[in-house]
């Protein structure tokens, strides 16, 4: 009962907002031209789902985001954690990591298109580069934040450096790594979107670019709505893998 009530309260603001929007703007062509209309967004959602174009765009962007997200996070995390093995290597690479991490990767989008073409490949690379350095830096921060007493404890058992890495460094960094995953959902999506927005023939970025060229605001907002849906979906996935991931790491490492 309580849970149902919460859902109702949560939906209330958006329902009220959409209703006011619809009722105030309906019939006013100028306002609709500038701001779109909920019922038109709904019409697009139905008609373009039926003719298949929306599903295709959705899956193109979704695939690019997910593949880029997975590759970027896995490589970033692995590199970040393994930098723990060598303090010297970390000290050398630190300025590069910070520089690349704070550089606006999106400025590289035109280059990505030139290097990897206008297809999905360049968008995946955009998503990879948008996520890689964040994952790397978070993973390294987690690894260097390990309680030194835990390492001392393992040393009394004459544990090897690799054993310390497996038993202490990886599990205690997991919170940081999951934190990076959560931040990176947005960045992966943004990377894919910007790639599509610059040059593409499919995807939600492409849909939004074309629709805004035609001043079809309702269609633009339809695209935005689906982008939000992708972000929510990925966020749910990340929060679902948190616990099993921890368990697997403790059991098998």
């Amino acid at each position: 009962m309580k849970f149902n009530k919460l859902i109702i309260y949560r939906l209330l603001p958006i329902v009220v907002f959409v209703l006011i929007w619809e009722l105030l703007f309906r019939g006013n062509k100028e306002l609709i031209f500038y701001y779109g209309l909920p019922s038109e967004i709904f019409k697009y959602l139905v008609s373009k789902t039926i003719d298949g174009t929306l599903i295709k765009d959705f899956f193109v962007t979704f695939t690019e985001t997910v593949i880029g997200f997975i590759i970027g996070n896995i490589f970033g995390t692995l590199i970040g954690l393994s930098l723990w093995f060598s303090n010297t290597l970390f000290k050398i690479s630190k300025p590069y990591i910070i520089a690349l991490g704070s550089a606006p990767i999106f400025a590289l989008a035109p280059l990505m298109i030139i290097w990897f073409g206008t297809g999905m490949y360049s968008k995946i690379m955009m998503a990879v580069f948008s996520t890689l350095f964040i994952a790397l830096f978070q993973a390294y921060s987690g690894a260097s934040d390990v309680n030194p007493d835990y390492i001392k404890l393992l040393k009394t058992y004459k544990a090897s450096k690799f054993q310390i890495f497996r038993k202490i460094v990886v599990p205690s960094s997991i919170i940081w790594v999951i934190g990076a995953f959560k931040i990176n959902v947005g960045f992966a999506l943004l990377g894919a979107f910007i790639g599509e927005y610059i040059s593409s023939n499919a995807g939600l970025g492409h849909l939004i670019l074309v629709a805004s060229g035609l001043f079809d605001i309702s269609l633009v907002l339809t695209g935005v709505l689906l982008m939000i849906a992708i972000a929510l979906l990925l966020n749910i996935c990340v929060s679902k893998i948190e616990k099993p991931l921890k368990k697997i790491i403790i059991k098998y490492l």
Binding site: D149, Y150, K152, L153, L154, T156, Y157, K158, A159, Q163, K167, I168, P171, S172, I174, K246, I250
Partner: peptide, 26 residues
Amino acid sequence: IGYMFQEDLLLPWRTLKENVKLGLEI
């Protein structure tokens, strides 16, 4: 050698049973 420190140093991500096994695992 078995060394027990001033602090218990149990690993927060392991259960009691998994914690007591740590030395054996290493």
